[in-house]
Nucleic acid binder design. Sequence first.
DNA 1: TATGGTGATGCGTTTTTTGCATCACCATGA
DNA 2: TCATGGTGATGCAAAAAACGCATCACCATA
Lengths: 311, 311
Amino acid sequence: MRHMTNLRFIDAVAREKSIRKAAEKLAITSTALNRRILQVEDEIGQPLFERLPSGVRLNTAGELFVQHVRNQIADLARVQSQISDLTGVRRGHVKIAGGADVLRFFLPELVANYRREHNAVTFELLRQYGDAAEASLLSLDADLAFVFAPIRTTDFQVIATARQTVHCLMSASHPLAQKDVIRLRDCIDVPAVMPTGKSGVRQLLDVGQMKRNMTMNMIIESDSFEFMQNYLIHEHAISFQIPISLEPGITSRQTKTTSDIVARPFDTDDVPAGILHIGQLKGRVLPVAAAKFLDDIIHMLGHRYPDDFNQ
Amino acid sequence: MRHMTNLRFIDAVAREKSIRKAAEKLAITSTALNRRILQVEDEIGQPLFERLPSGVRLNTAGELFVQHVRNQIADLARVQSQISDLTGVRRGHVKIAGGADVLRFFLPELVANYRREHNAVTFELLRQYGDAAEASLLSLDADLAFVFAPIRTTDFQVIATARQTVHCLMSASHPLAQKDVIRLRDCIDVPAVMPTGKSGVRQLLDVGQMKRNMTMNMIIESDSFEFMQNYLIHEHAISFQIPISLEPGITSRQTKTTSDIVARPFDTDDVPAGILHIGQLKGRVLPVAAAKFLDDIIHMLGHRYPDDFNQ
DNA sequence: TATGGTGATGCGTTTTTTGCATCACCATGA
DNA sequence: TCATGGTGATGCAAAAAACGCATCACCATA
């Protein structure tokens, strides 16, 4: 959309904090970009950026204006999505922020299903936890976000929640695999492959350890679920996941899988269950594509976790 | 703001329902305007207007887009108002829709007071009743609206209300002026100068007549409060107003005025009191100037009608 | 069938935007 | 202390976009 050019440019400069860098990304010369910024500032009647030797930075007026610009861009996307939906062909671009857990199996399947129906819709998946995901909603870099409790900003509108019990992963031949429910004391000396601090699972584990005043034997810390799971094939260690990130086929009931990995739930008295929130920016009207995808998410969560689901 | 040109143009065409007429208002040639419209439609990917022999008309996509355009224009005004407020000088343009009653004395005084403090703020007063005022909020032609109950759209957010008892106006020498409270039966044979149908006062009077199954002796119908009031000097008739439209100095207590006109309240068992609502478009963030003026309105209403005021 | 209204389009002119070269400024480090 | 590499700003000529005029095609109405 032509009339948005100046606005997109300002957004870009605000992000890059440099006119020259932004110009490069936008594939124009810095001089052209500079003059556009000056023109807008002239129209506004006062500067939006502070000029520093190292680049530019938004001033207070700029902060206000950039928020407005992002609203405009997002709202235009919504209207375009809504208009194209009139013709029957659903178009649009859906931006989702969430942890590695939901990005692993849950979202790929859901996105693929959606795109089978509406192949003119494109997606953007941002791997972000908690605060960062909420910030993305605020800056309109994301339409939807998956966040573990607690919610920080009051601008996060919770649409649905799913209760997720932390599970222990291990080789099927591991002694703990015989149990139906794992207690924290069972793990005390077992080598543990732990997710990194930001993830929801880790925070729940830390709460549990704190509560029982126990420390697990952490041998590896990683932010890759795949690495952690595959490591268990080689050493008799344990790892941790929540149901939504479990590989399909690995459930708490089955005893053997192709990869010989099994999952057993923690006793929730030891390690509390986490509440996964799916939400959007409060008060925002989502583009059709995003709103419909949100419906799919809710439907899938309700179907998969009927007892632990809330809307 | 330069980047809004195309949007303003589309808004204008939508209002005029004709490219040539809009072009004239915008002081450009119809060919230039036409090409801009075509360009936008091309960017959107589908037409926004139906071409008729007599001009153009918005199609469904166009309706969606124009609403978006008006939101953009209004939101830009809000941001500009907010930015200029940063420097201490409050700028902006406040648009208010209301009946002749509030336009008569209440708003002139309030606007003048406000402009004494902030002379860079300009105002626009639209004389509109009920539905029309609500529609102006919706199309963002108005920031604030005064509406008598009932509220039609769910998009009208009531900020405050003031209960208004219908008063009877008459020459001080009129026999009814001796009474403290007027009953409907007192008026049955008195020549009545009535406001026209849309006004809040008239609707209340009609309710009262219906309820008591009485018909007043209407000799004149007008939408000018000034005409009606001045007419009473020449014929011993009665007219009707609510407190907010009463000329300062004319109250229900005083016996003489310079113009020899006095006001007496109706018994509310006969003619119910009206509820004057002041409100805005639901969910909208008003420009600073409008929001602050709204504060003034509320303050004044609370001060003037302490017992009949709700917030 | 003529008329007066509508929006669309080809073409030459005017206005705006762009890119190059260059300036002024500042922090960093030899 | 002075060179260096970074920043944004600006004069000027070339490229691009927008504009206005004249004109077309269409349609309702008289």
